[in-house]
Design a protein around this nucleic acid. Structure first.
Lengths: 186, 186
DNA sequence: CCAAGTTCGTTCGGTTCCAAACAGTAACGG
DNA sequence: CCGTTACTGTTTGGAACCGAACGAACTTGG
């Protein structure tokens, strides 16, 4: 390595239960600090690395074909499964703010995939519904999306999949506030 | 439920190894389609639900204090651990395109946290380095970030954490192209 | 009934995303 | 040496993100 070349993160892992080389290097370099919880760091960082990798791939290979954003897709999916939604609830389900969803829905409405109507009983509310065109899109796109999910799950055995799902459900419930002490302090 | 109220996704799970009520409802509603891989869907959807929840929380409680974006934080972290980086590599590590990183680095440079300099041997390249001010920020912010990671990991026992990490590493390697058949077709 | 407080969806300014285009630099091969 | 190909980081246009602000509608309590 010459004086002008820069260090690059390594990628290899000898065994899945052991830290990857990159994980080990991070630990070594961050070791100057105290009170770092390395197992937690490894666990959480791998969650969002997997999520990022899956999302990037799905966006590129499935959603991009219809110029569908992740959030747009999620919105269509929620409307498909649970029917018309109030904006605030739909925003919550998509994991974005109301302001963001407004923009996304404007795009989907322009494409004729959703419509927004005032709520019958409460003048503040807007109810979002999917159109027949929107239904056709999600019915076509979702199976393709799911096929990507299958390809991802192929990394593991059936038992491992179930175990991963079980652990993630536990973590999710915890993060969403059912037992989190950090949230109690807020 | 009156005619104007809309269906909302349920949240409860009886046991972590069993589908949550929301998962069961999705399966019921999507059942009209064929060839849906429900276990894979459960597994993958829980990965990005956890990732989203963690990210939203960390952004709100840690990164937002310094008006640091997720990508900005990741860039500082990579520079801190691995030293100066070429833009293309840094973009790769942050999981964004070079174009996006340009904008993020412009913001970080404005704050005096990074500097961009031409590479000594290759006029096309830019080398990104962290300043002393940037170092101070990441040394302060990272432990706070890690504390959130610990809080997340508290949902599981030590063995469960290790198992979750092991499974995620396997999935990640698979998704990143080491064995993926969907990638071979591209 | 009415003032004060709360909630709603939209707008706004700034930033982060993408893909595509671009100008500059480097590598390659005749 | 030079034309062609490949790679770089930045710019561009459009869309997705955030938090804050806003005006309209609703709720609450005296």
């Amino acid at each position: 390595m010459s004086s002008n070349e820069v260090a690059r993160p390594a990628r290899r892992a000898a065994k899945w239960s052991e830290p990857t080389d990159r994980e080990a290097e991070v630990a070594a370099r961050v070791g100057e600090l105290h009170d770092i919880d390395f197992p937690a760091m490894a666990m959480v960082s791998n969650v969002y690395r997997v999520a990022n990798a899956v999302r990037a791939r799905v966006e590129r290979e499935v959603l991009g074909v219809d110029s569908l954003s992740w959030t747009g897709f999620t919105a269509l999916f929620v409307l498909w499964v649970w029917g018309p939604q109030e904006t605030r609830h739909l925003a919550e389900e998509c994991g974005v703010t109301k302001g963001t969803l407004t923009g996304v829905l404007t795009t989907l409405e322009k494409r004729g995939w959703v419509v927004r109507r005032p709520h019958a009983d409460d003048g503040r509310l807007v109810v979002v519904s999917m159109t027949a065109a929107g239904r056709r899109v999600i019915r076509r796109v979702f199976p393709l999306f799911n096929r990507q999910e299958s390809a991802v799950a192929d990394a593991l055995t059936g038992r491992e999949r179930q175990e991963l799902t079980r652990l993630l459900r536990k973590v999710l419930a915890h993060v969403e506030g059912e037992g989190s002490s950090a949230e109690a302090e807020a």
